[in-house]
Amino acid sequence: MVTIEVLGTGCANCKRQMSNVEAAVKQLGITAEIVKVDDMAQILERGVMMLPAIIIDGDLKISGRVADVPEIKKFLAGGA
């Protein structure tokens, strides 16, 4: 099972990011653990300085902007 961490402080963009991740997982029909990381200490611990960000199975895939659903699906398919 894939673990997707969505890093953000709860602002509008971070909520859009979470929603897009959920949509991508649903469209792909995969089983994933989606973890919302909104604690600043935990975000810093992961070395992320730009939000929102997505980490998939420990790999930082994107930070500083909202990825759309097709892009997230590519990440999940191992395309980026």
Binding site: G8, T9, C11, A12, N13, C14, M40, I43, L44, V48, M49, M50, L51, P52, G64, R65, V66
Partner: peptide, 19 residues
């Protein structure tokens, strides 16, 4: 003080993402 992460929602210059 340690540097804090910045969020794209507070970026008014549009430099973080695509224009």
């Amino acid at each position: 003080m340690a540097q804090q992460p910045t969020c794209s929602c507070s970026n008014t210059t549009g430099t973080a993402g695509p224009t």
